[in-house]
Design a binder for these strands. Sequence first.
DNA 1: CTGCATTATTTCACTCTCTGCATTTTTACA
DNA 2: TGTAAAAATGCAGAGAGTGAAATAATGCAG
Lengths: 227, 227
Amino acid sequence: MHDSPEPGLRERKRAQTAEAIHMAAAELALERGLDATTIDAISERADVSTRTFFNYFSSKEDAVLGIDETAVSLELERVRDYEGDVLASTFDLIYALFEASGGGQKNKALTRAVIKKHPQLMTRQMVRVAELEDRLSAIVAGWLSSEAAFAADSDEARLDEARVILGICLATVRVSMKRWAMHGDADPGATGAASAPSPSPSGAPADPRQTYERAIASLKTVLEKLS
Amino acid sequence: MHDSPEPGLRERKRAQTAEAIHMAAAELALERGLDATTIDAISERADVSTRTFFNYFSSKEDAVLGIDETAVSLELERVRDYEGDVLASTFDLIYALFEASGGGQKNKALTRAVIKKHPQLMTRQMVRVAELEDRLSAIVAGWLSSEAAFAADSDEARLDEARVILGICLATVRVSMKRWAMHGDADPGATGAASAPSPSPSGAPADPRQTYERAIASLKTVLEKLS
DNA sequence: CTGCATTATTTCACTCTCTGCATTTTTACA
DNA sequence: TGTAAAAATGCAGAGAGTGAAATAATGCAG
């Protein structure tokens, strides 16, 4: 994640402003609720004009989530090492995408708290993935080329299959995050991984990363049961 | 779909008005584009006040899609016969849900045309399913109870598994609809069903129902390849 | 057919989101 | 230090969406 040796004052200030707006939005949403939080209020607390707000975020929801489209693009262009497991790698991809939100520091905890209070924001994340579907599925399709079972398919077929796989993983993440949002810690065996050994101990703190790992196990269990 | 022998004048008029607004919205979206279509314009063409518009639909998108929440609720409360195939039944469920949009007549063709021009509306459909997730997954979970592989799970685990399955099917439908939206007819074998016999001939008219059947085949193929 | 209760429709006033444009301030760099 | 690029701001305005009160249409009992 080391961008350049010299971020420069300009970029530093820009990141700083974005962070301020994001924090203000998240705090206000937590204090008085998402609907009761106006962009005027966010801008005031962040000490910028409302017009400047829209120079950084395209909506209130994006500000709360701290969605930085530049960071997302950078993340997607990053070369990814493919580890041989399509599902696991796709989960990693989605994970990286979600992490491109929420600022840079440990105020991610704040963002998570807001998401817990307002599940609609989770839906917003899903929409984001849907919007990026073309780019994401292209990456997954690239991985599929080196998989024996998919190597014989045409490029177009592989792209469709990549879309399905992406959707499958996203669906699983969705469920995991929903569970995570409802009760911060989840029963280890309640996610359908009853027959699979759960990698994390019970009562674990609410870390999305662990959620994803549980999600993989959960998905594979369901797939087995369905076949 | 026979509601009651006597709908009554009031309800008839209500359905009529909803239809008028829906038609106006779809037509305008097709003529001048979705963004260039204002609620004022829709209301004017439908010959109602803009305030009345919001008594029927909660947004421009819903009006274009003809989303009637009452119809959706009725559809969901309908008793469903479970045929023994979780995936197929779930696809049917999603299909029914989507069909609860688009008015009642053959102006569904109009709605479809608009969706083709504005894929964002498809995303809106996905969001709808996400909003109804609780109710939908409860239905699927009910089906799972009678499946040997899931019978031993707890109710909670089954609900999570139902959510995953719902998400998987939805993802597949998404892909199929995307393909359908891009080129009205799809190459029979290009959806990843290269190894499965395609049920519909090539060059078929753009019927979502067929799309779903292809989607099932597509999904099963991917699942096989992944395992 | 008439009066009354219910429901729909409309009008009005209002808040909030978001955009384009012109202006001013700040930063970068030669 | 001077200048060009970038960012911040103020302003004007369109569009979405809501609440409340007034008005019209409908259903129903008598």
